[in-house]
Design a protein around this nucleic acid. Sequence first.
DNA 1: TAGTGGTCTAGACCACAAA
DNA 2: TTGTGGTCTAGACCACTAT
Lengths: 235, 235
Amino acid sequence: MAAKQHELATDLERRIAAGEFSETNKLPTEDQLIEQYGASRYCVRGAIAVLAEAGEVFPVRGSGVFVREDREGMYMPISTSYGIAADFPDRKVVSMVRELALTRTDEKLAKRMRCDVDAPVWRVVRLRCVDDLPISYETAWYLKEYVPFLNEEIASGSLYRYMREDLGLRFGFTDKVIHMDWLGAEAARQLGLEEGDPAICIEDDAFLSNGKLFNASYNLYHYKNAKFYSMASMR
Amino acid sequence: MAAKQHELATDLERRIAAGEFSETNKLPTEDQLIEQYGASRYCVRGAIAVLAEAGEVFPVRGSGVFVREDREGMYMPISTSYGIAADFPDRKVVSMVRELALTRTDEKLAKRMRCDVDAPVWRVVRLRCVDDLPISYETAWYLKEYVPFLNEEIASGSLYRYMREDLGLRFGFTDKVIHMDWLGAEAARQLGLEEGDPAICIEDDAFLSNGKLFNASYNLYHYKNAKFYSMASMR
DNA sequence: TAGTGGTCTAGACCACAAA
DNA sequence: TTGTGGTCTAGACCACTAT
């Protein structure tokens, strides 16, 4: 059972997508939404905050809550993401598993993953494509403590959906570090590029809602096919 | 006069930095903070939300609000930023103005900036350095409508501080698009790299709190010296 | 079971935009 | 001046953690 704010947010999203507010480009006022949904102002404002954080609307004090223009083109969100599959619900997302093994952490990985050396981890290497374009070559580790079982079929789909819906994991937050890197021979071959080509690299540490790290990954992005966006409030 | 939540957030930040909670790595409970600051729960939770968004703490239901480990090294926030100067308060940030001219928007720029063609804009090209390392080569446009005056002295410092404190502009949000690009001759020369070297490129559109775009920029980052981080909640 | 953060309500006043 | 979103208070109950 989702929280009421999120239900409102989802419904407002639907109404925006349906073009209900396209004439004025404005949402109903908070008081009207309170009326419409029989909810408190706290809930209504929570829902608006969700949409604002997603960059779909922006509230202007004294004036109203405005719907923002659509972003054209294929961009990946750099901040919150529930996996690439969720980012492109309308596109064909394919993950090709290149490696899947249950191994143990060496010293360096254990340090990064805040766990003991020799802790069991799944190592998953995947080539990820959207609409048949190679997007990223991803090397990820999942602590077996939190992900007891994994197979190629699951890894071919959305691992995040599996962890959330089937394993019942609750996600908390992620840390990302973004920098430039160069492709090795194997990554280049997989992405259809040349060894030594540049790539945007994102190192991602993902934590559960209890603050425990469960997943670390190293992602090399295709310099042509992958673009990112980030929206942020400046208050 | 800042909002009460932000005052609390600032004070909590100070206490965290002073190591007051380093033993348990936990903030006082919400009830204790209500007591300590004589504030309502709304304020206290608002302050915690500010710190959580900045990645400094993470709240765990039923358990407490935990202080997160420090990030080591020099990283730039990819999401919210009040300018590079604010990102590195303890470092020597220098902006070298390479161009500063009052010009007019051509068709393409006008479209990007959602303004009329031939609208007056300041064009500012700067090389930005942190601790004497070249970080980025930035081409930025500021609509004269919102920034009536600019000179080299101001552009050498923090333009954002100037706009906020001296011009009284209130910032709303930014859109960023991140992708790979290659350095032209001039950008390479300025950054001390070779023409054709790769660079992370961030195109940034900045809006006032009334939703009007006032600043667009095109930023090429030094592939060695610039690293970014992004922290995000996954709820 | 006790303690802690998450959600929700009801109501008040303030700051700002637009007429 | 009116209407809008922003901040704040007081109080209630729920969901989860830790013991």
